[in-house]
Computed example of a mutant assay.
Amino acid sequence: MRVEAILWTGVTVYFVVIGVTYLLVGGDTTGVSLLLMATGLGGLVAGWTWDWSRRHDERVEDRADVDASDLTGIVGVYPTASLRPLALALGVTAMVLGIPLGSWMSMIGIAIVASQVLLLTRDTDT
């Protein structure tokens, strides 16, 4: 996480420099406040990544002497072919059609979407 921490620290420093420059040149309070909020968000992520890299062991990606065999293992677990995305699209369509047709159609769409999302996550976790 050392690379990510340096990257996010750079983002934070960039927004500080741009914010101060914008304050001195433009003076628009709205733009300055937005740049300061971006600085704060970048600082939150930078602080989290520095803290995480300090508290946890070094990852394989952080070592300089790593080769491809060190990163082998389970790449990912993917669900089998399913019609759940089609049912999910049907549920979203029913939710959107509920706006002009009536709330009963939206309720049906919400029920379909909720059931398919739950079943899709259950299928993915196994």
Rank of each mutant, 00 (worst) to 15 (best):
M37V: 15
G42E: 01
L36P: 02
L83R: 06
R59G: 04
G76P: 02
W52F: 15
G73Q: 12
V32C: 04
V45K: 02
G47H: 05
R54I: 00
G31H: 11
G73N: 09
L83G: 04
T30P: 02
G40L: 05
A46M: 10
V60Q: 00
H56M: 09
S33G: 05
S53C: 04
L34Q: 09
V32F: 14
M37N: 11
G31N: 13
G40H: 02
V66T: 14
D65P: 03
V77W: 11
L44V: 14
P79E: 05
T49E: 14
A38M: 08
H56R: 12
D70R: 08
S69Q: 08
L36S: 13
D57I: 02
I74K: 15
V60N: 02
Y78H: 07
S82R: 03
P79R: 08
L36M: 13
Y78S: 05
R54M: 01
T29K: 04
G76N: 14
T29R: 09
V77I: 12
L41M: 15
L44F: 13
S33I: 12
T29L: 08
A46H: 09
D57R: 13
T30Y: 11
G43N: 04
T30E: 10
V75H: 09
D70C: 04
W48Q: 07
R84W: 13
T39S: 15
G40D: 02
Y78I: 01
D70L: 08
R63K: 07
V60E: 01
M37F: 14
W52D: 15
L41S: 10
T72L: 12
I74M: 14
S82A: 01
L44I: 14
M37A: 15
I74F: 13
T29H: 04
V45N: 00
R54D: 00
R63I: 00
G31C: 07
H56D: 07
P79D: 06
A64V: 11
D51V: 05
R54N: 00
A64C: 05
A46S: 14
G40W: 01
R84A: 11
T29V: 08
L86R: 09
D67E: 09
D57G: 13
D62G: 10
G76R: 14
L44N: 05
D51T: 10
T49C: 06
G47F: 08
H56V: 04
D57H: 09
V60A: 09
G47A: 10
Y78E: 11
L35M: 11
D70H: 13
V66E: 07
D57P: 10
P79I: 01
A81I: 12
S82P: 02
V32P: 00
V77R: 15
V75A: 10
D57L: 03
P85D: 03
G43F: 02
